[in-house]
Amino acid sequence: MSERRVELEVLRYHPETDAAPRFQRYSVDCREEWVVLDALNHVKETLDPTLSYRWSCHMAVCGSCGMMINGEPRLACKSFLRDYQGVIRVEPLAHFPIERDLVTVIDDFMAKLKRVKPYLIPAQARALEQGEYRQTPAELKRYKQFTLCMNCMLCYAACPEYGLIPKFIGPAAISLAHRYNQDSRDGGRAARQEEIAAAEGVWECSFTGACSEVCPEHVDPAAALQQVKIKSTVDWYLAHLMPWLKK
């Protein structure tokens, strides 16, 4: 089994002792097939128990271990050492306040997610006794990719708009709103428009497309946002040019 010494440069910040973040270098004996998270765990176990970061599943579904790795937002559990040469620089996700070391404050995202009403608002009420709603595989496919968002927030770290204009609701939250809008069982689009079709919603997006490039689940948030823009635009024209269509 091949081993390799990896140089990790990790951003450290401790609010109780540090005025500002600083980098700390670790030399770690790693196995070639490891991911960056394994290297961090090795640091924590053998070199420095004070290093703090979040992680859990180690299989890219829980979304805990989003970090900037060599400047790029990535899941540490799916960033293979074999893909890196030289010093690997690990920082907390960009655009979020740093609580400590690699741990960020994500209150902003959690609040925004709630604002966009990311839950089914049934178009037609249905009692449990009536069984499931019918939904064809094609109707499922219409929104399925947007359900895959694990809230890892790499897209927020990649999005320059969010970095510059923090009130932007952002890619993941809008994608999840769009996920429900696209669901054949849902009738809640009007209720969500107030948040997502507003200035702080999709109109803050300038379609950099970085969110989709870094998304580990290929959710394609950029697609969701553009689709919301188009539909909102159509809404506007219908409302202003053909007001009689409005019920």
Partner: peptide
């Protein structure tokens, strides 16, 4: 399912 779970169909 009524809460939106995307079960296969």
């Amino acid at each position: 399912e009524h809460w939106g779970c995307p079960w296969n169909r």
